[in-house]
Design a protein around this nucleic acid. Sequence first.
DNA 1: ATCCAACAGCGTCACCGATG
DNA 2: CATCGGTGACGCTGTTGGAT
Length: 269
Amino acid sequence: MDGMVEENGAVVVDPLAHTTGGNASAIITSVQSVIQANKQSVIQTAAGIQLKPGNVILVKPNSVIQTTPGNIQALQVVDADSDDDMSPKKRRDVLSRRPSYRKILNEIDEIAGNPGHKVESSSECDSNLDSELSSHSLSTHYSTVIPAGTIQINSQGEAVQGLHTITMTNATSAGGLVQYTSGQEGPFYVPVVTQGGGLGGGSVMPEDQSRKREMRLLKNREAARECRRKKKEYIKCLENRVAVLENQNKALIDELKTLKELYCQTKTE
DNA sequence: ATCCAACAGCGTCACCGATG
DNA sequence: CATCGGTGACGCTGTTGGAT
């Protein structure tokens, strides 16, 4: 199951989880769900959410799926063990390529009622959710994620722009180190890796190739950092949504209870 | 104070989809 | 088709909290 196991055992399902290993797969598009691990599950779909044809939700026996009329075209009962014979290659094919976190967040945002409103930073997601949360008297608050610096490097590997500026000096890497200067954090050095796997001088690899490699590593390092930041932001958004939906659910249950009592009273009179 | 397991964060590699 | 960006997976390292 592609989700986060929280301390209380609840699993927050990745809304766009492409798939999962094992026999518990959840391929859900744009559904906010809370599934209790090894317990009965509750899946709620908010108004306007649609399950795309072909999507599969596996739930434990006696689970409940709540939805507004017309959202689910068909429920298909499948044997959860039936995909065990999926070959590793096939499983990998299914596993590969999930939408980017930016896409997912944008999609969530559109579902939340802001079509065409693109999420560019964590603060937007948080602010939407904060208002939602405050309207439900939730004390939960998530601080804004500090944005990572954007780095743009031209073909010469020298010019940069963004919140943090990084300039590559000493590109010839004499002495086995390439020095970068950062506007915020001062100079830092990247060791030059040669083709033989060693660090430093005695480069067998042409300098140009070596420099390209260093640039690629630098960019990838930054990309990985950014990716992780977005992932965390995305998870926080999901957690916020879970909190909101749990609160809504609680309120609806209370309302239902009150109405039932009212109904019983008027009936006995 | 020390040990150890759990966890978080990072860098790197490999892969894939998007794009020019 | 080459290149680039995004992301999963893996291994490594530092931190933290509980047990002794």
